[in-house]
Write a protein that binds this DNA or RNA. Structure first.
Lengths: 181, 181
DNA sequence: AATATCATGTAACATGTTACATGATTGG
DNA sequence: CCAATCATGTAACATGTTACATGATATT
């Protein structure tokens, strides 16, 4: 088979909360899972087509002409559970910041400093966003899911705080390096 | 242009330390940059061919028949600096663990627990590896580069420690969730 | 009426992995 | 000599993004 793309997991998972159009799926994934997941239209529409053919989602032609709201079927719910149980597919690491810092001598302490500063600012932004998510009023319907969501928020916070701590350490080290040169 | 793949940066960067065969390049990238970067043969050989054509690397046919050691040219060194100065290409996030935890209610606290436990163990392994790297005796020739390398090691350590702290917190939360059900 | 947004889909492109074919060299 | 490893390269495949074509609906 091997057709088990993680896109299907994300799509089925999102639809397990509520029926949506493909367009809305993309927005939901961007806005809600954005910190740790992403999908583009070019992935979502073909995935929906295949899921429909397999009977995992159903097209409930609603609202405007041409637009269709997709709904997860009973089979789809079972498939989601199966997909979630499959081993995690690791993506090979590709950290552009670390690549640059590793060859940082070529760039010099100053350019490295600004790279680290940029990473620090980005981590601060993420932290603020997580804070905003935590402040969102809990929703009755999804109350049961909230503890799991908070697990992912917490992971993001730990990661962002680690990035900030590291950045401060790195900035100090780079300053030292700049002075002694 | 747009030919500025980050593979070229990694290849030129590695060759800036010492001349190597394509095979050795792959090993060096895996062993040294492995925690934050990866390249496969299918990327390295075409990249070397193009860099050779542009005059950024030179093939110094050495050693055994058929094998060729690649050396960075003066132009290649300039190009490396240029590439390092280019904006970081962000890879869209795809964190399979978080995807599963977000839909964790479908899996239940126990299955989530084992996912988190796996992540924790992996972070511990990484931490041990970073420790080993730090203990490696410094090399005369690359002494100037070491401070930059240590920046990346430190980032890995911060990230791994954050993962462990998060995992412990998450395990406690999941236990709570399992009890109260 | 014009513009912005919602919505679906596809085609072209970019990137990257895996598996294979092929052969040289080294160590036991 | 034989197995393991070193070494080069390519082809097939998988994945994913971006840009485009097309049109409906909502907003001003």
């Amino acid at each position: 088979m091997a057709r088990a793309s993680q896109t299907e997991t994300a799509v089925l998972g999102a639809l397990s909360f509520m029926p949506m159009t493909g367009y809305a799926l993309r927005e939901a994934i961007r806005d809600v899972l954005g910190h740790f997941w992403s999908e583009s239209f070019g992935q979502i529409y073909p995935a929906l087509a295949e899921l429909e053919q397999r009977g995992d989602v159903r097209r409930a032609g609603s609202g405007r002409t041409g637009a269709s709201t997709f709904d997860i079927t009973r089979a789809g719910k079972a498939r989601l559970k199966e997909l979630l149980g499959q081993p995690i597919q690791q993506v090979p690491p590709r950290n552009g910041l670390m690549l640059r810092l590793f060859f940082g001598r070529q760039l010099g302490p100053l350019a490295c400093r600004s790279l680290v500063l940029g990473a620090r600012a980005e981590a601060e932004r993420r932290l603020a966003q997580f804070d905003a998510i935590r402040r969102e009023p809990p929703d009755e319907e999804t109350a049961q899911d909230r503890p799991y969501w908070l697990l992912t928020v917490s992971a993001g916070e730990h990661s962002a705080r680690a990035a900030i701590d590291w950045a401060d350490e790195a900035l100090a080290a780079l300053d030292e390096l700049g002075r002694s040169r």
